[in-house]
Design a protein around this nucleic acid. Structure first.
Lengths: 263, 263
DNA sequence: TCAAAAGTGTTTCCCATACACCCATGC
DNA sequence: GCATGGGTGTATGGGAAACACTTTTGA
C-alpha cells in the first residue's frame, strides 16, 4: 500500500520491508464490497422522500433498489465510494453522508458474497433532481408512506411496496428511517434537509421534523427548544432579516459546519 | 452463491440463470474484509477492561492490537467472523456482540486495502480468561484509565499508551467506549457485563454503570430508575432470594432475552 | 378589519436530584 | 451495640407540554 502513514514513518526494519514486499494480498478469498445509499429528502409538499433506481440488469432486473456500487479498491474508502455514486446518479454534492450499518450475510446477493456498507444521505429540500437514466439504470424520487403492513413508495409514475424492493434493501431503509428519527432528538441532522442552511425560518425547520417524525409538533415549544439548543448555544445565529410571508419570520443561519462523521 | 433465498424462490428466468452462471466475481478488484473486536469487561476490582493481543507477525509486530481477523468469504457474515475470532482467542461465547463502525480508509493497513468492520463485545464479569497464546499472538486483559493526553492500558505485566497501539485501533477503542457510554442511558447493554444476568443485586449493576461512566452514582436514584425502566416494565423480575452480604440484597433476574442486534 | 402566521407568556405537571432516614445483618 | 450496606421517603427545582394570548403583516 503505497503512501501509507506507516511506511512513511520510516521505523521499519529491513525484515519487515521484505515481508511487506512479498505479502500476497490474495492469500484469502475476498468478498466484494459495495456502498449502498439511502438518499432522503423532503419535497415541496413537505413529504419525506427517497431516491430509488430501477435495476437495468440482473439480478433483480426491473426491480427498484437503493443506489450504490462497488468501491474502487486501493483508491477510495467506502464513504468516498458512496459519495461518488450519489454524485454520479444525482449530481448533488452538498449532502450529509453518514454510515448506517454494514450488511454481510452470505446469500444476500445471488451473484457472490457482497459486503454492503449502507449510508444515509440527507439532501437539502429541492436540490434532489434526478438525472436522466441510461439503459443501466433509471432513477426516481418516491414519497414514503406507511400502512398496516409496511412502507410504500410513491412517485408520479410508480407505486412500490417494500417487499418489491431488490436485495435486503427494505430492511436497510427501515433501519435508516428509524435511526434518523432517534438521531434528530440529539443531533442537528434535520438542518441538512433545509433548502438553505444559511437562511431559514424556525417554521421551516419544524416542517422538516414533522416530515421525519410523521407527527405534528407545537410551534411554541419547538421554538423554545430551538432557541435553547441552537441559538443560545451559539450553533445558529439570527440574521435580523425578514421573509415575505404573512408576518415576516425571523431568519436564522447555521454558524457551525455540520460535522458529518464523528470518527 | 448457492443456497440463496433469491435462487430458491424459483422466479428466475433462463436468461437470468445464465447471467448468474456466467458472472465473474473477480470483475472488480476487491479489498480484504476483517472483523476487529473491542472486547470490554469489568474486573473484580470493578475496573473497565479491554482485551488486546500482541502481534506476533508483521506489520506492527510486537505491538498491541485489537483481536480480529479475516472473514471466511462465502461461509460467514462479518458478525460471525467476529464471534469466531473472539471465541478462538478467549473461549467465551455468552457475549454481546454489536457492530460499531466500518473503517475503510486506504492505507490503514500497510499490506493492502483492508476494510475492517469493528464490533463491541461485552463479556460478563469474571468470564474473560485469556487463553495461552502461541507464537502468532499473545493476549492480555488491560485496565483502561485516562490521563491528560488520552487512554492508557495497564495489565499486570505491561503498560500501553493509546498511541502505541497498532493500526488505527486507538481510534476504534475511543469510539467504542464513547458509544457504550451513551448507549447505556437507553439500552440494557450494561446487563451483559454482570457476572450473572439471572441473579444479580441492584448494587452490582450500579457498579457496572460506574465503571463505564467513570463516575459515582446515587444508589437511591439508581434504584428508582432501575425499578421504573426494568422491573415495572417487566424486563426484569425479582427473585425474592437474598444474597449473603451485610444486609442481604434483593436479587433480580432478566426475563427478556437481550437482543443483540436491532436489524 | 380580518385572516394567517410569527412570536410571547403562563400554568401545570412530571421527574430527576439530593439527601435524610429507617432496616437487616454480621461481628 | 454498632458498623455496613440495603432500601424507603420526601422536598425541591428545572424543564417539557399544553394552551391562551399578542404582534405583524397582506389582502
Amino acid at each position: 500500500m503505497k503512501d501509507s502513514e506507516y511506511l512513511r514513518s520510516g521505523q521499519i526494519s529491513a525484515e519487515e520491508k521484505e515481508f511487506l514486499e512479498n505479502y500476497d494480498p490474495d492469500k484469502y478469498k475476498k468478498p466484494s464490497v459495495t456502498a449502498d445509499v439511502v438518499t432522503l429528502t423532503v419535497d415541496e409538499q413537505d413529504q419525506l422522500c427517497i431516491l430509488l433506481i430501477k435495476r437495468g440488469g440482473y439480478p433483480y432486473k426491473g426491480k427498484w433498489a437503493l443506489p450504490g456500487g462497488f468501491m474502487n479498491t486501493d483508491e477510495e474508502s467506502v464513504t468516498q465510494a458512496a459519495r461518488r455514486e450519489l454524485f454520479e446518479e444525482t449530481g448533488v454534492q452538498d449532502v450529509s453522508l453518514r454510515q448506517l450499518y454494514t450488511f454481510s450475510q452470505p446469500g444476500r446477493d445471488p451473484r457472490m458474497h457482497v459486503v454492503s456498507v449502507a449510508y444515509t444521505a440527507l439532501v437539502p429540500k429541492g436540490s434532489l433532481k434526478v438525472r436522466a437514466g441510461d439503459d443501466a439504470w433509471e432513477a426516481e424520487v418516491f414519497r414514503i408512506s406507511y400502512d398496516v403492513d409496511g412502507m410504500t413508495f410513491q412517485s408520479d409514475s410508480a407505486l412500490v411496496r417494500e417487499e418489491d424492493l431488490a436485495f435486503d434493501h427494505a430492511k436497510i431503509i427501515r433501519m435508516a428511517i428509524k435511526r434518523l428519527r432517534s438521531r434528530i432528538k440529539y443531533e442537528p441532522d434535520a438542518f441538512w434537509l433545509l433548502k438553505d442552511k444559511k437562511e431559514f425560518a424556525i417554521s421551516e425547520l419544524k416542517v422538516i421534523y414533522e416530515s421525519i417524525l410523521n407527527e405534528k409538533l407545537d410551534l411554541a415549544n419547538f421554538r423554545k427548544a430551538f432557541l435553547r439548543d441552537y441559538v443560545d448555544a451559539g450553533r445558529v445565529c439570527s440574521l435580523n432579516k425578514k421573509s415575505n410571508a404573512k408576518r415576516p419570520a425571523m431568519l436564522y443561519s447555521l454558524t457551525e459546519e455540520l460535522n458529518e462523521e464523528e470518527i
